[in-house]
Simulated assay, not measured.
Amino acid sequence: MYNKAETSRIRSEFWIAFGQYMKPIPNSEGRRINWPNYKTGVRNIYFRMKAERDFASIGIELGHQDEELQELYFDQFAQFKKMLEATMGEEWSWKLHQENEFGQAVSRIEKILPAVNVMNENDWPEIISFLKPRIIALDEFWSNVKPGFES
């Protein structure tokens, strides 16, 4: 279907398009932000957006190598579950100690949009419409809870 170079180019074009679409939108503190490469500012806590051949997803990924510390972060997020769901306006999936695509143990709190394909440019508006409000809401949520994760 697509060779590796084409796949890489199409994915790159999607993320560039998404970044340009999001560029005029400031973060919750009114500052410019690189939305596709969102930095939480806290080690081992990542906001991951994915656009794949059969789904799109957005989530919080906890990547601490020490699984006990990872679970501690997960439990800390669980204390804010109601706040997260209120900010997001929906329930998210909570997965403790999953294996990521690199074989590392991670924990995820995520929302998945099934049956979209980043390789199909006709799906891009649906993927962007899925990711945009969620990354903005996630940023708002994070601005409220981040101090609890910085110590």
Rank of each mutant, 00 (worst) to 15 (best):
M1L: 04
Y2P: 12
N3M: 03
K4W: 11
K4C: 07
A5W: 06
A5Y: 08
E6Y: 13
E6A: 15
E6K: 15
T7V: 12
T7Y: 13
S8L: 11
S8P: 01
R9V: 07
I10S: 15
R11L: 15
S12F: 14
E13N: 15
W15N: 14
I16C: 14
A17F: 14
A17W: 12
F18Q: 05
G19Y: 12
Y21K: 13
Y21R: 11
K23T: 12
P24S: 09
P24T: 10
I25S: 03
P26V: 13
P26Y: 08
N27A: 09
S28V: 11
E29P: 00
E29Y: 04
G30N: 10
G30I: 10
R31L: 12
R31E: 13
R32F: 04
I33G: 01
N34M: 04
P36Q: 11
N37Y: 05
Y38F: 07
Y38M: 01
G41E: 10
R43A: 12
M49S: 06
M49F: 04
M49K: 08
K50N: 12
K50I: 06
A51M: 04
A51Q: 04
E52Q: 10
D54E: 08
A56K: 01
S57E: 04
S57K: 03
I58R: 02
G59D: 04
I60L: 06
L62M: 00
G63L: 00
D66S: 09
E67S: 07
E68M: 05
Q70L: 12
Q76N: 09
F77Y: 00
F77N: 00
Q79N: 14
F80W: 06
F80S: 02
F80Y: 10
L84E: 01
E85D: 10
A86N: 13
A86Q: 14
T87C: 10
T87F: 03
W94M: 01
W94R: 02
K95D: 08
H97C: 05
H97P: 03
Q98S: 11
E99V: 03
N100Q: 07
A105I: 14
V106M: 08
V106G: 01
V106P: 00
R108C: 00
E110F: 02
E110T: 01
K111R: 09
K111I: 07
P114C: 08
P114M: 10
A115R: 14
A115K: 15
N117A: 11
M119S: 14
N120V: 11
N120S: 12
E121K: 15
E121T: 15
D123Q: 04
D123M: 04
I127G: 08
F130L: 04
F130G: 01
L131I: 02
L131C: 03
L131E: 01
P133M: 11
P133H: 09
R134H: 04
I135D: 01
I136F: 10
I136C: 11
I136G: 13
L138M: 15
L138T: 13
D139E: 12
D139L: 11
E140F: 07
F141R: 02
F141A: 02
F141C: 02
W142I: 06
V145M: 05
K146F: 07
K146E: 13
G148C: 10
E150A: 15
E150R: 15
S151G: 13
